[in-house]
Design a protein around this nucleic acid. Structure first.
Length: 769
DNA sequence: TGTGGATGCCTTTTT
DNA sequence: GGCATCCACA
């Protein structure tokens, strides 16, 4: 137990207390992962069996990392049998073991968000509802929210509050959709992400024996990132820990940023209400960042009302101030960040690995990418469209899923006519409606088309039968052939690859490479399973059971090349970099324009807190006065959060006119600038010149050249000062009209919606008299 | 039945 | 700019 000497006093206390419930509040950079890994290592060294320790994390990456570190401390032999993984993967495993109790087979499919929405969409269609009103995404989040609060479809339909709320939102038949959705998932032998938690809860509720079994197995329960748990997760942990209460949760309320996914910050804030005898450990020393960074972050988070008070401090050097810079356009921002990165690399000799660019939304990555590429700076984007979300990969996996689980309707839908085999929309509609009529899966209908009176002509019936037989042959091999061989023969036989071969385009080539990459991943997966778990035969279902819960966070380029990391702030949680660039620090972007309540605003502030605290040595923040988004240029003000950081930790560089004044108070949130005030404050002239590309300072010729030629002209149809109405933005006032690249454009002030630059041919403006 | 073009829609964060 | 949908036409 030599290793315990690596810990400071509070870390040591937290690690060695294991007799009852404990809450570890771990400030950013305070060694949270260290406490968790050492605690497990400590338990193992005390003779606790690894198989009796349940350790839950939020990402696969985190759990792999921890397993590795524990292995280094106590040997890999010991760490192998730990129950360690993400909530979703651990409970998927348990559900597969117990599947028959709840009417599933152990090879159930896992529907991802796309599958769920697609199923909801078809139900909406079947009910002949308008998908403009019943928007699949919206309905999905309603259902998801309910499930995360353990409200089943029948409970949903009996709950008058929910009915009222659905009525107010003009989607009163959501409950009905929910009921059908549930039935269809079951019919398809599929669970969605939320089911993995909901069904676990139902299993434990309805089968006390099973609950007892797992209660007995898990003698020690540890939960990482506890601030991000939702009600369903809370309840599972709670039940499992009921008997022995040896539960340790670790988290930081200041880093709770997943409420949109149902995470409930109250779980951590009120942990000690649930466990009255819980010990509280606070880790307050930050080992990661310089004092300036820690102090700046503290002064920011101090503006939040809802939090567990703590005093995070650093004993590292004071360090550089946080540099805040303003630029004119998002292009300029990207180039100036790229320049700074070059300098850090060339002059200060930082590895590219020590640099990260963080942003609020994935769509911001494109400009950055362009700028880095032009400067030949290697980078890797995390998040965004992940490998497993690419079309060709989803297609291939849909085949695998259908082979493993013939009832998987979303998989079937996806590939029944891809590559094209003459089974068109008409036929598909007939197939699916026949299936629904008889309340069976589409596959069941395919097996006996005559019995179900499937109304298709002989030619079509043959095509359907051929398709069915092809899949059938693979299904028969599923438990005898190894994953790689089966996957390879599926890919070959189905023609996904030959389809790509026919067309020699760059896209097709890259699609082929991706499919090859997938096969390689299956191979590697099999090798790993054989090596780590001594499995003799790794089958395709084995692979599928893990792949559906993988995210791109887990696919890391591992070739040892140095790269700048680019990702959303959400994705950066838990990571650290010597140099961090936070870009797009603007109103309407960060905080997100979707922010409505004060609670949500506090979450945005925590998100900014997370961003700043990723930095070890240097933190650079930038904001732009205009940004090209959704096909138009929007003007923007600096984020209110900049004012929340104590000025003494900031250094404003270059052409910043904005100066930090008072802190933003909560009343600011509702403070919508009056339209007339706006006009007075910002005369049209200055705006017009501001948007001219010539204005951009410094050595930004490249971008300037890229910008288009703009000629200001008076447009008689849209005179300056006229009021117009836009479908989305409402009433606005014309500030200026111009021609850019032959397109007529107008700059219009929409008051609270901001100043927009719109192309007249698209904007469909209505002139108001 | 398949395909290409036009059109109209939205656009946060993710296990 | 991306994606789904619609429509005309092969």
């Amino acid at each position: 137990m030599d290793f315990l000497k690596d810990l400071n006093k509070s870390q040591l206390d937290a690690v060695t207390y294991n007799d009852g419930p404990s809450l570890v509040i771990a400030g950013a950079g305070s060694g949270k992962t260290r406490v968790l890994t050492y605690k497990i290592a400590y338990l193992l060294s005390q003779g606790v069996s690894p198989a009796s320790i349940l350790a839950l994390t939020f990402t696969n990456k985190a759990s792999r990392e921890m397993r590795k570190r524990i292995g280094e401390l106590v040997g890999y032999q010991n760490s192998r049998y730990l129950w360690m993984g993400t909530f979703h993967s651990i409970f998927a495993r348990i559900l597969r073991n117990e599947a028959e109790h709840i009417g599933y087979t152990k090879d159930f499919s896992i529907y991802d968000t796309t599958d769920s929405k697609s199923l909801i969409k078809s139900i909406i269609k079947e009910l002949q509802l308008d998908d403009k009103i019943y928007r699949p995404g919206n309905i999905h989040s309603r259902i998801s929210f309910a499930k995360n609060n353990l409200i089943t479809a029948s409970a949903y339909n009996q709950n008058t509050d929910i009915q009222q709320s659905d009525l107010r939102s003009r989607v009163p038949r959501t409950g009905e959709i929910f009921t059908i959705y549930t039935a269809r998932c079951k019919q398809a032998n599929a669970m969605d992400f939320d089911d993995l938690l909901l069904q676990t809860n139902l299993l434990f509720r309805d089968y006390p024996d099973i609950l007892n079994k797992y209660q007995a197995v898990f003698g020690y329960i540890l939960v990482d990132e506890y601030q991000d748990t939702n009600f369903a997760q809370y309840l599972i942990i709670n039940k499992l820990a009921e008997q022995h209460e040896r539960i340790c949760v670790v988290g930081d309320d200041a880093q709770s940023i997943y409420s949109f996914r149902g995470a409930n910050i109250d779980n951590i804030l009120k942990f000690r209400n649930t466990y009255k005898n819980a010990e509280l450990f606070k880790l307050e020393q930050n080992y990661r960042s310089t004092q300036n960074i820690v102090n700046a972050a503290n002064s920011l988070i101090d503006k939040n009302a809802d939090q567990i008070k703590k005093t995070i401090f650093s004993e590292k050097e004071t360090g550089n101030l946080i540099r805040v810079s303003s630029v004119m356009t998002d292009f300029e921002e990207a180039f100036s960040v790229a320049n700074s990165i070059s300098e850090l690399h060339k002059k200060e000799h930082y590895s590219y690995n020590d640099i990260a660019v963080l942003y609020r939304t994935n769509s911001q990555s494109r400009v950055m990418e362009e700028a880095l590429r032009k400067q030949n700076i290697p980078y890797q984007i995390y998040g965004g469209l992940s490998f497993y979300q690419r079309k060709e990969i989803k297609d291939a996996i849909a085949y695998f899923r259908l082979v493993a689980n013939n009832d998987d309707e979303e998989a079937l839908k996806r590939i029944i006519n891809y590559p094209a085999r003459g089974i068109g929309n008409v036929t598909q509609d007939k197939l699916f409606s026949t299936a629904q009529l008889h309340q069976v899966s589409a596959w069941t209908v395919l097996q006996d088309m005559l019995k179900y009176n499937l109304d298709v002509n002989a030619g079509t019936a043959t095509k359907l039968a051929n398709f069915r037989n092809m899949i059938d042959v693979f299904t028969q091999q599923i438990n005898t052939l190894n994953a790689y061989e089966l996957a390879e023969s599926i890919v070959k036989a189905t023609g996904i690859i030959s389809n790509a071969l026919n067309d020699r385009s760059v896209e097709a080539l890259s699609q082929m490479e991706n499919v090859q990459e997938l096969l390689k991943a299956i191979h590697e997966f099999s090798d790993m399973k054989k090596e780590e778990e001594g499995a003799e035969l790794v089958t395709l279902p084995d692979f599928l059971s893990e792949v559906s819960l993988l995210t791109d966070q887990d696919t890391e380029k591992n070739d040892g090349k140095e790269r700048v990391s680019m990702m959303t702030v959400h994705a950066a949680k838990g990571l650290e970099f010597k140099n961090v660039f936070i870009v797009g620090m603007e109103e309407q972007l960060f905080p997100s324009p979707y922010t409505e309540s004060m609670r949500e605003m506090e979450e945005e502030r925590r998100l900014f807190y997370v961003a700043i605290t990723r930095a070890e040595e240097n933190c650079f923040i930038s904001y732009s006065k205009s940004r090209f988004r959704n096909g138009q240029t929007n003007f923007a003000n600096p984020s209110r959060f900049l004012k929340d950081i104590n000025e003494e930790y900031l250094e404003y560089t270059d052409n910043t006119q904005f100066s930090p004044r008072s802190h933003s108070s909560y009343s600011d949130y509702d403070d919508i600038p009056d339209i007339r005030n706006r006009f007075r404050k910002t005369p049209f002239k200055s705006r017009a010149t501001q948007s001219a590309p010539v204005q951009s300072p410094r050595k930004l010729t490249k971008i300037s050249q890229k910008s288009s030629e703009k000629v200001v002209v008076e447009n008689t149809n849209y005179p300056m000062g006229a009021f117009v109405k836009h479908k989305l933005f409402g009433i606005g006032k014309i500030l200026e009209t111009s021609i850019i690249d032959g397109n007529e454009k107008a700059e219009i002030d929409f008051g609270e919606k901001g100043v927009k630059s719109l192309l007249l041919k698209f904007a469909k403006l209505e002139i108001l008299k």
